[in-house]
């Protein structure tokens, strides 16, 4: 059992718990401010995932360029959505770039490491295939 799998399962379980708790709350008391926020976050997460998938599918760029393009595309998406949802004011809209930037700074080394590990694994398996 790896830490990665434990964290992944915990996050999935947390998302399910939030959905169930809020679904029950909607039935009892309708869409409150907090429930509205969770629904808006789910919609934003869906839009970001969709944009990420489409960029992966249709843009063949180097890893760094891919991250730069995604950073600006997703920041623009968060910015636009934030204004529509009323999360940002004219004075603090730049916060969207910081939020997205922090996520990307954390994601880039993790992604690089994962790619390196996957390549090592595949090449080891190929080498094993040759010797067996």
């Amino acid at each position: 059992m790896s830490i990665k799998k434990l964290l992944k399962d915990s996050l999935i379980l947390a998302a399910l718990m939030i959905l169930v708790v809020f679904a029950v709350s909607v039935i009892w008391s309708g869409v409150t401010e907090e429930i509205g926020l969770v629904i808006r976050l789910f919609i934003l997460a869906f839009m970001i995932t969709l944009a990420n998938t489409l960029l992966d599918e249709y843009c063949s760029l180097t890893m760094i360029m891919s991250y730069v393009v995604k950073y600006f595309a997703i920041s623009a998406l968060v910015l636009l959505y934030g204004f529509i949802a009323g999360w940002f004011f004219a004075s603090n809209f730049w916060m969207a770039f910081i939020y997205v930037g922090v996520v990307f700074i954390l994601a880039y080394p993790i992604d690089s490491f994962r790619v390196k590990k996957d390549i090592e694994y595949i090449n080891t398996q190929i080498a094993g295939r040759k010797t067996s």
Binding site: D56, S60, D111, S112, I122, N123
Partner: peptide, 29 residues
């Protein structure tokens, strides 16, 4: 498949046993 390589520009390349090279998208690794 003979080998997967990461090129300097961080693109991925698959080398086949006839030495043909194919570009691999990171998404499919």
């Amino acid at each position: 498949l003979k080998e997967i390589r990461q090129l300097r520009n961080s693109r991925l390349e698959a080398v086949l046993d006839n030495d043909e090279k194919l570009i691999v998208s990171r998404k499919y690794l």
